[in-house]
Amino acid sequence: MRIPRIYHPAPLVVGQTIALSDDAAGHVGRVLRMSAGQTLELFDGSNQVFSAEIVQADKKQVQVRLLGSETDNRESPLFLHLGQVMSRGEKMEFTIQKSIELGVNVITPLFSERCGVKLDAERLNKKLQQWQKIAIGACEQCGRNQIPEIRPVMNLETWCQEQDDALKLNLHPRASASINTLPLPVERVRLLIGPEGGLSAEEIAMTARYQFTDILLGPRVLRTETTALTAITALQVRFGDLG
């Protein structure tokens, strides 16, 4: 059986005996039904991974002893900040999960004119908590040891006008440039993905004022969640660590 990878939200030190977080303990104790003497791999958001042995486990609490550690850097040389206009239902969760597997470092959910999601502050906060759990789960699954940042939801123009030395890209079906025509080298990218209905003409003009470059992925019109993952993959192949 593959050794489970578990995130711990506090710095880890070899030799410690610690209690796992409530979510992690529930997964290890109730879902995996692991018991004393079995081993885990823990990570704390640094590039260190820790081998650990369970010393006590029940349905409410799991305690482990940290046996050793090693450096394990799985991060791409390309720093990617995804600005994703929120999509309905499970599409947003899917985009967050898969973009993290592909190496995105920061995700900012956005509101735009044609955004189909309308949520009050309380529901937005619950969504943010759920997205953060999805980010942790994606890292546990894919082997990343640094947890990407999921930022609070903001307005599209507020995000576009943030000061950033990254290359700013906006996917547009009538753009003349493509990812393959972008000049090398590129170390940081701020990638904007619009809503299911696309950005309005006014919003596209606004992104140009903030020095976003329109790029084309190909001849077919992609759904918003497909667009994000395709663009991230293409950027990682050209500037990052895929391929």
Results as ranks from 00 to 15, higher is better:
R5S: 00
V64S: 04
I96V: 15
R223K: 12
K98E: 02
T224C: 11
Q61W: 05
I215P: 07
L78C: 07
G103R: 03
D23R: 14
P148Q: 06
A25P: 09
P185D: 11
A228M: 11
N73Y: 13
I204Q: 05
Q63P: 13
G218Y: 03
S46R: 12
L20T: 05
L124V: 02
V28W: 07
D214A: 12
P195T: 05
R151H: 15
P185S: 03
F79R: 09
T71W: 15
A121H: 14
P173T: 06
H27Y: 12
L235C: 01
F212S: 03
A24T: 00
L128N: 07
R123C: 04
G116L: 15
V153G: 00
K91E: 08
D214I: 02
I3W: 04
N155C: 06
V117H: 07
A205N: 06
I232N: 08
C142T: 05
A10T: 12
W159A: 15
V55T: 13
G194W: 11
R74M: 10
L102T: 03
W159D: 10
R220Q: 12
L222N: 09
D44P: 01
T158L: 15
P195A: 03
R88E: 00
L191Q: 06
V186K: 01
C139M: 02
A121R: 13
I100P: 02
D72Q: 15
E122Q: 14
P173A: 08
I204R: 01
R33M: 14
T108N: 08
S69I: 05
D120H: 10
R30S: 09
D120Y: 08
M86W: 06
I107G: 09
Q16I: 09
I179Q: 04
A57I: 13
V55I: 09
R190V: 07
S99L: 07
L199Q: 03
T207P: 06
D22E: 15
A19H: 07
I215Q: 01
T213W: 04
F43T: 00
R88M: 05
L171V: 11
